[in-house]
Amino acid sequence: MGFKLLSKLLVYLTASIMAIASPLAFSVDSSGEYPTVSEIPVGEVRLYQIADGVWSHIATQSFDGAVYPSNGLIVRDGDELLLIDTAWGAKNTAALLAEIEKQIGLPVTRAVSTHFHDDRVGGVDVLRAAGVATYASPSTRRLAEVEGNEIPTHSLEGLSSSGDAVRFGPVELFYPGAAHSTDNLIVYVPSASVLYGGCAIYELSRTSAGNVADADLAEWPTSIERIQQHYPEAQFVIPGHGLPGGLDLLKHTTNVVKAHTNRSVVE
């Protein structure tokens, strides 16, 4: 069995187990497998329904001669939608809004960016022009300005110390501490036991640490421990890039980060 097929099978099995364990909360999309990078042309966006009122959005972007996937989250909030992270750029984010209108038909009224990198804030200006209120932590807003990236308009308070959590509509926002970046936030959907790890969490097929220019490698494993301790009931975990899975993604990420750190020390 090929690795790609095995990865998709694991996603399907995880979703099936969740649907059985929580039949009222989960209505997993039966329309197909989780979209992969090879299936999404740059400039297009796919939506994948995880649970009743919960979707991931998947886009792709060219970077350094390669094409990478990027995940975000959409959560229903009454007759409105909360968006977590842009679709990595203005063109993708405009396509995301169009796809949401086509498939869901509810307005996106608020959006949260989970850290300051372009795959999370690139497209904020498109959201703002569409009347979406954009939010991020003060740290993310400051770092985005320093980096020359787009800056969300509103500040999220109460997320300055490791372990801080605040309720934001249908989700809980959690600051686990520094990891992929010093400002990275985690998003949890309690009604569906869905954990969105953003770039602080890796997919299972990833074996290298990737972009760690703004990471705190020493603190990252401790931050992941905080996530595990705060959300032990999480059933569906979405990484910032690639295929979702279960809580095993947290341990896998820790292993990859520690291996990278150990290699760096040896070198």
Rank of each mutant, 00 (worst) to 15 (best):
S7Y: 15
S7P: 11
L9I: 15
L9V: 14
V11H: 15
V11P: 15
Y12Q: 09
Y12I: 12
L13G: 07
L13Q: 11
L13F: 14
S16V: 13
I17D: 05
L24R: 11
A25Y: 13
F26L: 15
F26N: 11
V28D: 11
S30R: 13
S30Q: 13
G32R: 10
P35A: 08
T36A: 14
T36M: 12
V37A: 15
E39K: 12
V42W: 06
E44I: 08
E44T: 13
R46G: 09
L47W: 02
A51Q: 08
D52C: 06
V54M: 06
V54T: 07
T60H: 09
Q61C: 05
S62N: 07
A66W: 07
P69Q: 15
S70A: 05
N71D: 05
N71A: 04
G72P: 02
I74F: 06
R76K: 08
L81M: 07
I84G: 02
D85I: 00
D85T: 00
G89Y: 05
K91Q: 15
N92T: 06
A94I: 15
E99P: 04
I100Y: 04
E101I: 06
K102Y: 11
G105H: 15
P107H: 10
V108I: 10
T109A: 12
S113V: 06
D118V: 06
D119K: 00
V121F: 04
G122T: 07
G123W: 05
V124S: 08
D125M: 08
G131N: 12
G131K: 09
V132T: 07
A133C: 07
S139H: 12
L143H: 06
A144N: 03
A144P: 04
E145N: 11
E147N: 15
N149F: 09
E150Y: 04
E150S: 03
E150P: 05
T153R: 10
S155K: 11
L156K: 03
E157H: 11
S160Y: 10
S161P: 06
G163E: 07
G163T: 06
G163Y: 05
D164V: 07
A165P: 08
F168P: 02
G169H: 07
G169N: 04
P170S: 09
L173G: 01
F174G: 01
F174V: 02
G177S: 07
A178V: 07
S181L: 03
L185W: 02
Y188H: 05
Y188A: 02
V189T: 03
P190N: 07
A192Q: 12
S193Q: 14
S193D: 13
V194C: 00
V194H: 04
Y196L: 01
G197V: 03
G197S: 04
G198S: 07
A200C: 05
Y202T: 09
Y202P: 05
E203D: 07
S208Y: 10
S208E: 12
A209L: 08
G210F: 03
V212P: 09
V212M: 09
D214E: 07
A215P: 04
A218D: 13
W220N: 03
P221E: 10
T222E: 12
S223Q: 02
I227T: 09
Q228L: 13
Q229A: 14
H230W: 07
H230N: 13
Y231H: 06
E233V: 11
A234P: 08
A234I: 08
Q235A: 10
Q235Y: 08
P239L: 04
G240K: 04
G240Q: 02
L243C: 08
D248E: 14
L249S: 06
L249R: 01
K251G: 13
K251P: 14
H252K: 02
H252M: 01
T253F: 02
T254Y: 13
V256A: 05
V257M: 08
V257C: 04
A259N: 11
H260S: 13
N262L: 11
E267D: 13
